[in-house]
Design a protein around this nucleic acid. Structure first.
Length: 228
DNA sequence: GCGACAG
DNA sequence: ATCTTGTCGC
């Protein structure tokens, strides 16, 4: 079946840039997005030390209890070299394959990386959102672009992440006195709501439970050499 | 020209 | 991302 945003996998950086240029206008910034999604998905990828094999995992959590209600993994090869700004092309195919295996359609995607906080405003979270049509947000552990000041020390404190004269995300403290995370909109979500979702997903640790469960799943898949 | 640079 | 031990603190 045709996908409205189907794009041939790029083989060169120039082709990848062209794909981003074509898909970027499709990002929905209307927001505010679901304030009380029933299910939230976490996506993450783990690499073999050789770097030639990867496992992509998606875990779907009950947004209220944070219990895992569905999950899927796909093993494959990196689809593109790692290039800051073109990171999505590396993991996207495997992540989409894992999403296809789900039996539960999540209401929000929480991506391991950035959304609008990207040099061309089209990071992994935007890409995944546009391709799937689902609301999506990005939660990065380190910044890619932008200037920012450290937020106050208490959980919930935040400061704007600014780049090119615009606010592209927020630096959000999810735990008291612990290094903050970088939240940005991916698709069909507002920035304030995105941060509220992240805080709801971090009752115990710095990173969202969605990211943590997906991280464990793809690591386990690699360790068991699934797909071999 | 020199650094910076999601995972 | 991944390679890695101990160590400081609650």
């Amino acid at each position: 079946m045709d996908t409205p945003v189907a794009a041939p996998p790029p083989r060169t950086e120039a082709e990848a840039l062209a794909v981003q240029d074509r898909l970027r206008p499709l990002v929905d910034l209307a927001g505010p997005g679901p304030a009380a999604p029933a299910t939230v998905a976490g996506l993450d990828v783990a690499y073999a030390e050789s770097g030639d094999r990867l496992a992509a995992a998606v875990t779907v959590l009950d947004a209220r209890t944070l219990a895992v209600v569905d999950q899927a993994v796909s093993v494959g090869r990196p689809a593109f070299p790692y290039v800051p700004g073109l990171f999505a092309f590396r993991e996207l195919p495997a992540l989409l394959a894992a999403l296809e295996l789900l039996t539960v359609r999540p209401e929000l995607l929480v991506c391991d990386g950035h959304g609008l906080a990207h040099p061309r405003r089209f990071g992994l979270a935007c890409h995944l959102g546009v391709v799937t049509g689902l609301p999506a947000i990005g939660v990065g552990k380190t910044p890619l672009v932008g200037r920012w000041e450290p937020p106050a020390g208490a959980r919930g404190a935040w400061s704007p992440l600014c780049d090119g004269g615009e606010v592209v995300g927020r630096v959000l403290r999810t735990r008291d006195g612990v290094k903050p995370v970088f939240v940005s909109v991916g698709h069909r979500m507002g920035l304030g709501n995105a941060c509220a979702r992240v805080l709801a997903l971090t009752p115990h640790y710095r990173l969202p439970e969605t990211t943590r469960t997906a991280d464990r799943l793809c690591r386990a898949a690699l360790a068991s050499r699934s797909g071999v």
